[in-house]
Write a protein that binds this DNA or RNA. Structure first.
Lengths: 169, 169
DNA sequence: CATTGATGGTTACATTTACAACTACTAGCC
DNA sequence: GGCTAGTAGTTGTAAATGTAACCATCAATG
């Protein structure tokens, strides 16, 4: 059977990306899920809070990125667990600023190396050249979507409202 | 940039891939979901069946990739819709082979160009060089995971030895 | 200040998904 | 044959998710 097979999958970008994302996450998902009892949105919110002193729910929605209900529920769960503390903004009492507690920071500090080790184990067979090619390829898309400098497309990017939350730097 | 902030996210591969996969899929998801009433597993099964004459549920699980319950329910839905027909294997009656009906092939032929057009619109700003870099970067990972030659790991599912599966060109 | 419209965030409900049994069947062994 | 173990695929149930409605607050206008 010569392959008359149309090579749709091979070249269809969303499919390729989703497949690779899932394969890459297969090992690490267990770490935050089974070992630490976090859902994926919770883990993502945790990571983002670990990289910024304080973020509003809206800012988290833009950074994670996720719909506000997912962020809301993740924040509730993390708060209940004592990893996050929220304080109401005094200028605009609809807004609340979420930040990691010391306990939350310790938790992230514990989980992060596990995640990195699992990922490194997965990528171990790659040569430095291959890693560079991979990085460059992803950077192309990140520039396209404007997420390259997560720090750059920051709160300003989400800043249609330009709320007063402290900028990251 | 005086960031003390560890750039975990920037360099953490699963996170980068998941983010890009989601951003890339944002536009196309609507096409198969709203316009054609397919769930993502259903769409994935449809695509895979379109590229192979006949696949068992197990083979689909490996190719999609997805857990067998997702594939099972996707097949039920596609069968009910008349896009897939399953026939029981005579050598092993636990096994059934799924294939697209003519109607299913027409459906895929209708959806596919919509998906490709939406993706192309998204990638329009990229230069040929950037596209090549993107492709090379993803190919690095695909080789690592052995998914490069999707066409090779056929119904037998044999080629999972992880060797260099036949590069599909 | 009352009214209107917009926004940050939460809650409610329907759909999807994950995980764990479960059924049907095959295969090996005595 | 009858027993056990293993595999292909399905179904039941609890958790997770998407969508839409909702509450509280703010800002603008009369």
């Amino acid at each position: 059977m010569g392959k008359v097979i149309a090579l749709f999958l091979r070249t269809y970008l969303p499919y390729r990306l989703n497949l690779l994302a899932e394969l890459t996450s297969d090992g690490t998902r267990e770490i935050y899920r089974k070992r630490h009892g976090l859902t994926r949105p919770e883990w993502r919110v945790l990571v983002n809070l670990a990289e910024a002193p304080s973020l509003t729910a809206s800012a988290l929605c833009a950074r994670v990125p996720a719909h506000k209900t997912k962020v809301s529920r993740a924040l509730v769960a993390l708060e209940r667990r004592g990893w996050v503390r929220r304080t109401v903004d005094q200028q605009d009492r609809r807004v609340s600023h979420a930040a990691l507690t010391a306990q939350g920071q310790r938790a992230f500090a514990a989980i992060r190396p596990e995640m990195e080790a699992a990922t490194e184990a997965l990528l171990a067979p790659l040569t430095p050249q291959e890693r560079a090619r991979l990085d460059e390829g992803l950077a192309v898309l990140e520039r396209l979507f404007g997420v390259a400098g997560q720090g750059a497309a920051e709160e300003g990017g989400a800043a249609q409202g330009g709320d007063g939350a402290a900028p990251l730097e």
